[in-house]
Amino acid sequence: MNEPSPLSPPDPVVAQQAAWLATQCALVATGDATALALAFGHAGRRHHDPSEARIALVLAIPAADPLRWLAVLDRLFATAGLAESTALYRGLPRYPHAALLRARAAVGVRSSMQSVFEAVALDNDYPAQWFEQDPLNQMVLKAFFLDCDHRRIKGLAARANPGLGRMLSDYQRERSAAGRAIPDGLAEVVAWCERL
């Protein structure tokens, strides 16, 4: 009888945070660089989902001029802390001008910080959609090296290729020769590649 209706108003704090974010996004959309910079930092303390809030701010950056847009995004990346970087990389498939972001995505894949690597490689549509074959193969191999769950690499089955099969088979043999365990799923991905 007292159960909240599915249409009950959202928690006031959440509503307040959403209003804050909407205001900031509106300022960012006018090209206000200071608003973008400050809100991007404040998102960690003023929003319950900092990662989503930061992606929303990026999506509000005026994008009519692709190179100016890219310069603004590059500056956010260059000055980002770890959580901020992770959010920026997670948003890659949702940004405009996706084709301009290949080099940036490759930087994330080469990162020595596992959370940054995972933000690009796992649960992210960008690599399968936009990576050339070689960087994609390197990313998949690195994911196995880092013990990531290959099922979280989106679109992997569709991008399976003989080159990847060769790299993963070599890795499989190397592990066996050293008497070390074969990562879960490695054989499955090799099989996808060999079916081609």
Partner: peptide, 13 residues
């Protein structure tokens, strides 16, 4: 001056 806002709102400032 253009750079400062990118750091002023970060944690620990």
């Amino acid at each position: 001056m253009e750079l400062l806002p990118l750091f002023a709102a970060k944690d620990g400032v």
